[in-house]
Design a protein around this nucleic acid. Structure first.
Lengths: 187, 187
DNA sequence: GTCTATATGGAGATAGAC
DNA sequence: GTCTATCTCCATATAGAC
């Protein structure tokens, strides 16, 4: 692994663990075993390195979600597979976590990769639900876009509850609520 | 208003706007028009002042939510009133916002007021839903605790979506999903 | 490309006068 | 109780050698 890749990987880990503001270049250098010169050679600064790391995380997450969505056939089962896909509730969502950082939301370049991820995720779930409506599995009058947004919001909020109580089970409680809701949407 | 109250109020504002880590004592002093000596006289340090401010915010929020819950009679209408209560989606939840701060979650004293707030909120919504079940407004087999957690998670997640897209309407989309879900839970 | 040494500014707290 | 002056430490970046 090149120093550049090591820096990106270390930054991605730290962004997940500590967020953007609370992650210092010094921490990234220590974890990646790179020197300060390498970092400022490959990246213009902390922000550029973070953007590279965020893009990398986004790509990984998308692939993982696509795998979950492909693991079943009915729309309900596919969304449930997404809801059940492996997570670390106390660590938080790699992407959503960053949005609570003042510096990320305030910088268009930093927010863009996160916004794109959520646009993609919501659209992807909307498609799956629309498939369910077309196949008469789900109610014909279902507002698929609203429901998709509700599901995405539930997952993000479930992380908040788990962190509030420092208890991973709180995450699953909210997720169970989403599953029950889905079951109620069948035609 | 005493200097102590001015400090608490300024800290509360800044905690909402910027979170805990990104708020410096200097900012609090500037906004409250107090000197550094006043702050360290009334509070042991940044953390103690933040705890006072958080407790204050929690009390305010609870009162506001109780008002919303009292504004209607049926369980569905009461929860909808809570969902519709005035908010600033882009600013985020005064309490939930803090949970994404590494320093808050890592310090038991700082996390406690936030955890208590969410315990109270979830329990309160659980009671309202249970009333709905008892009065035969809602399905007899409804899992009220799970549903309450789901509703709380939806609101927190709705803030995440609004911040992601920097668009308050994204907040309402997720909230609408919660309202539709509620409507489907009627007996 | 990668390194170490150094600069600048702000965070958070202390000291001690009034 | 409230103020200003000062201290230490670290975040972030630059300079310049190898």
């Amino acid at each position: 692994m090149s120093k550049k890749d090591a820096l990106t990987a270390a930054a991605a880990e730290l962004l997940w663990e500590r967020g953007y503001s609370a992650t210092s270049p010094a921490m990234i250098l220590e974890r990646s075993k790179a020197g300060q010169g390498s970092m400022y050679h490959h990246f213009a600064g902390k922000a550029e390195l973070a953007i590279a790391a965020m893009t990398h995380m986004s790509d990984q997450l998308r692939a993982k979600i696509e795998t979950a969505l492909a693991a079943a056939d009915t729309a309900t089962a596919r969304v449930n597979a997404y809801l059940d896909s492996e997570r670390d509730p106390l660590a938080g969502c790699r992407m959503g976590r960053l949005l609570h950082d003042h510096d990320v939301v305030g910088d268009e370049r930093l927010r863009a990769p996160v916004a794109e991820f959520f646009t993609w995720l919501t659209d992807r779930l909307t498609e799956v639900l629309a498939d369910g409506v077309r196949s008469a599995e789900l109610r014909p009058d279902l507002d698929v876009a609203t429901t998709a947004a509700h599901i995405v919001a539930t997952v993000q909020g479930a992380y908040v509850l788990a962190r509030a109580h420092q208890n991973p089970h709180e995450f699953n409680r909210a997720i169970d609520g989403a599953k029950h809701m889905l079951a109620n949407l069948r035609a």
